Amino acid sequence: MAAYTSLAVDTDAADRLHIRLNRPDSKNAITQTMVDELHAVCAELEERPRVLILSGAGGVFASGADIGELRERRSGDALAGINSALFVRVAALPLPVIAAIDGWALGGGAELAYAADFRLATTSARIGNPEVSLGIVAAAGASWRLAELVGEPLAKEILLAGRILNAEEALAVRLVTEVHDADALIPAAHALADRIGAADPLALQFTKALMRAPRDAHPLADNEAQAVLFESEQKFARMTAFLERRTERTKR
């Protein structure tokens, strides 16, 4: 992959990509450069689908958009959807995305985490959207994704009243699904990627797409996906292996 200035890339495992937001001196604030580099990561994963793990350097996931850049943006920048277009692309990646949240995930950093399929956190995680205190709205997904994730009453507390969730609170409302000590976070993300990776990649891609499809697309979309999978080599190989294992168990 290309050399990046605001991201650190781990490609050790063939079935996943671990991207670390890597601007620790600014608490991984999201800049235009980081947005551009994350678009390049998305292009790579659209071309060669793998599980994506997102984390942050320096004990912080991402403190939000870079305020210095944000202050200079005008109406045309807002209409261009600089962050929102990226996060839509992240959410639409073919295979699951895991956000591993350590420390602060605020503003745009929280919205990036909301775009993931799974969110894991450390005990020090703090998640929220303080945009209205800066005279703007959470325009990169929080205004609609957050209500889907945690329900409208809590979303309003976060978006309108500035509530910051700690790890325990985020776990209680299932905004995150696991909480770990800091040194166990990335191993836990890889363990989750291992469980995902045990499944058929094409079945995973279809399942993720079906879960995002509008209600009126079902059941036709499900049937069409199943029609493709019913003819796949993986389906026959995996089901044959299952039947053979069951036969072996009954012989014992």
Rank of each mutant, 00 (worst) to 15 (best):
Q32P: 00
E131R: 10
N83E: 15
L17A: 09
A113D: 08
E69N: 10
R71I: 15
P49A: 01
A91Y: 02
R74D: 13
K27E: 13
T123D: 13
Q32D: 14
A125M: 14
G107Y: 12
D117A: 08
I127E: 05
L38R: 09
A140W: 08
L17K: 08
R16D: 04
N129W: 01
L86W: 08
V35N: 00
D66E: 15
A142F: 05
S133F: 11
G76D: 15
S75I: 11
V88E: 15
L106K: 03
L86P: 11
V97F: 01
A115L: 10
P24A: 00
A105V: 05
A121W: 04
D66M: 10
L134K: 05
D25E: 15
D36M: 08
G141E: 02
R119T: 11
S124C: 07
V60K: 03
D25Q: 15
G76E: 14
R145Q: 12
S143I: 10
D102N: 15
P130H: 00
A121H: 08
E131Q: 13
I98C: 03
E72L: 14
A139P: 00
A29K: 04
I67L: 13
S75F: 12
E47N: 14
L120N: 02
A78I: 12
R23P: 11
K27H: 14
P24H: 03
P94T: 01
E111Y: 03
T31Y: 05
G58A: 06
V137C: 01
G58C: 05
A85V: 11
A99P: 00
L95K: 10
F61P: 05
A91I: 02
R74K: 14
